[in-house]
Amino acid sequence: MKILTANRLTDGEAVWYAGGAWAETIDSSELAADKAAEERLEAIGAASFAANEVVDVNLIDVEIVDGVIHPLRLRERIRAAGPTNRNDLGKQARPTAA
């Protein structure tokens, strides 16, 4: 399974594509379970890149663990949370929506 991720052009913020827009957290990312869905996400990423909204667009591998999106690579888990040595920085430091 794959999701689409990138960094926002203006501030470099890591973002994930979630149902029509880029989100600052990974949780609601749109999942691609087959080749056709991956191609659709890729096209969205390419268009957003071309529209100068995001840079460094990538499809990444994820699995669903207990209903939560979990990237396979540590790199992507760190992008989704923030530096592992500083819990006060990155997404992990932000108040979660109630």
């Binding site: 960094n7 470099g12 913020e13 890591a14 790199r75 760190i78 992008r79 923030g82 920085l89």
Partner: peptide
């Protein structure tokens, strides 16, 4: 100016 994991 580089682009890293979380930001520039």
């Amino acid at each position: 100016v580089y682009l890293q994991l979380h930001a520039y």
